[in-house]
Design a protein around this nucleic acid. Sequence first.
DNA 1: CGCGTTTACGCCTCACGTAAACATC
DNA 2: GATGTTTACGTGAGGCGTAAACGCG
Lengths: 300, 300
Amino acid sequence: MTLKQLEAFYWAATCINFAVAAQRVHLSVSSLSKRIGELENSLNVQLFDRSGRNAKLTERGEQLLPRVREFLRASVQLQQSVGQHLGLQGRCRLGMGELSALTWLPDLVRKAAELHPALEIEPCVDIGQVLEQRIDDGELDCVVIAGYASRNHLATEIVGDGQFVWVASRELIERAGADHPRLLIGNQTLVSLPDGAGSTRILDQWLSEQRVSVNRRLTCNNWGAVVGMFVAGTGFGFMPTRWAQELEARAALQILARDETLAPLTYAAQWRRDDSRLLISELREMIKFCFHLTAPRALT
Amino acid sequence: MTLKQLEAFYWAATCINFAVAAQRVHLSVSSLSKRIGELENSLNVQLFDRSGRNAKLTERGEQLLPRVREFLRASVQLQQSVGQHLGLQGRCRLGMGELSALTWLPDLVRKAAELHPALEIEPCVDIGQVLEQRIDDGELDCVVIAGYASRNHLATEIVGDGQFVWVASRELIERAGADHPRLLIGNQTLVSLPDGAGSTRILDQWLSEQRVSVNRRLTCNNWGAVVGMFVAGTGFGFMPTRWAQELEARAALQILARDETLAPLTYAAQWRRDDSRLLISELREMIKFCFHLTAPRALT
DNA sequence: CGCGTTTACGCCTCACGTAAACATC
DNA sequence: GATGTTTACGTGAGGCGTAAACGCG
């Protein structure tokens, strides 16, 4: 029995399949499989049931899992207890939306590098739905997305709010002869992120409140591209307030109907409820700090 | 950091030197040294001070030792928690005197094999003094010898008593014209185990009580040989009561002066006070059981 | 010079990844 | 046939022991 075998078991047991677990331990699937096999006949116990399509934990495997979790925790605690207190260490796969990646992520990485030099943060940028699936599968340790967890074995903690405003280019406003989203929506193109993105939720909410029908809608999974289309006059839409103010100051865009408020978007950290590693709580604290540190700063 | 490295560290830290520790982990000295070196720069900490003649734990090493002990205990507990409850496992080096080896040891080995099939008992037969030194050095896990521990970091538990009687061959009695040890001791050869053996202690006690001077003394570190010399008439001495009765029944020896009692010899288990492995307490229970089981049985 | 530890070095095992095979849905 | 896991196999790194070197008493 080795620590590596136990780690392999832990991740194989908590990830959706061996392929995902293999990524987590930097191994090929076949090597992971072999490691688990070694552990099994080292302990002389069948830990996985391979009869089905997916390997699933046996009863003994289920019994062993929490003990292994505790043991691995003890092992990192042992390492920390002696290693010059250089903070957390290891890998941490952190999922977030693009706006987060463009705002507080750099601060988080810098802060983490200061406080925990041995901690490797691997950001993964995608839309909320995908991130939620990935953390569920075990590919990610923690995600920060809009709204609360929709899966009951994910835990949630609110990180902060994001405020959005409607924008359009001067050219589009002139072409449409109107500068209010309720008027633009009938004959201009609404550009937004795809369904599944956190910010699209508040759009859906607004649309249902307004009871207006959308003339034409264009979605793109990249905020930079979306904003580029705002600036180019391809369409209108909404974007984070601070970023919009920045662009308005440069006369690239105009903020529309400041009274027409969109609901603020609540961002929350999500993690697996059974993942009680110190890493997770520390990370959440850092995220909250960086979120509020960066919130007032404009996007460039 | 691996479990093997931690085991190497544990034994190197608790044994008198690397050579003894290397035996404990079935390794050559050089490999042990390298393993510890690997652990040190894996944890980025100097665990041993190599400046002196012997490697000695540094302050950080001292701090780490109890944590490692606890961690290794947790690791075997983890293994036991899943492995079909096949009892204790691993190696156990058990020291004892020759009489113990000839009486209750076979029972202990049989019982241990039943209860703990994965437990490897390695008996080490020697005289008490040597055993005490060896457990001190870390070569043995537990010893059963006469009397209490003379070193204060060894713990003690009484296992039982052994009773001895004086014996001589018929031929020697006739030659000496006497059948009492007080009379024989002046002109016959007293055969016994060497100094440092447990049974010699009660001889010394008897001699100082009797205030007699020994004519000629012959020591041999093997009970079989000593008894052989009794039978051959080379000399007289004392031996375990049950064994003597067996030989008397075969007319090989005569028991002398049944009223001239030697103090019973108290046997005690000794182990390192800081070694709180479950193995040790379990072993002690088995030893006590076997000691009393076998005590009434005669030696062959 | 003896004893304890480390370094040097050749050897061999073990663990990895690629690719194919197998199994299930 | 697509997906998920295991087996086969060639390769490379790491851990082993022997033997020599080092360093303190």
